[in-house]
Amino acid sequence: MSIIKTEKLEKTYSDNGVPVHALRGIDIEIKKGEYLVIAGPSGSGKTTLLNVLGALDKPSVGSVFFEDKNLADLSKSELSDFRLKNLGFIFQAYNLIPVLTALENIEFSMMLLGISEKERHRRAKDLLKELGIEELADKRPNEMSGGQQQRVAVARAIVNNPTVVLADEPTANLDSKTGGALLDLMEKMNREKNITFIFSSHDKQVIDRAKRLLILKDGKISENE
């Protein structure tokens, strides 16, 4: 059963009045539990596709269906709810909230869901333990290394049990060893929790581990294997 489906997806930006066709007719289906990497050269439309799939951006033409629900039918507020309940995000620059500790960063998205303080505290602690980063609980982002921050970002992304986690160049700022460890972690989450992972990356390490690879070129799918 497909969890995400796109139909004739197109995205055109205006760059100083000049139209830029970032996506040109993308049709894909992603099944639950997939471990998919979107690869391609810079400017091929990887991040744009990830943003559209993550309901952060709207397509110019075409539709994105999430469990048969057309995202175009959702209001701004419903889209926020949708992202909160169904999606997790991992960014290249980690993007943890600097004034919150690791534990609080993880709790934050649960707080947005209205989970009680006691429950979110318990869940965040359990997750930190599961990811082997318990010792980071009380540290703020500026007290952590890049790898540690990205592990906390993974924890933040999966703490609400999302159906899909979208990771935009998650290893780009990490050395290969740290990146590898992070990928191990995400593979484990994919395997054990059946969370769908969609990566946008041109990191060979990420591409090599892909169970499904989607290569974009000039806004079109050139390979889907």
Binding site: L84, I97, L113
Partner: peptide, 16 residues
């Protein structure tokens, strides 16, 4: 701005 973008991405509603 970037931080607000992250907060919005992870599902924080505008009113919050």
């Amino acid at each position: 701005i970037r931080e607000f973008g992250v907060l919005m991405s992870i599902g924080m509603k505008n009113y919050k």
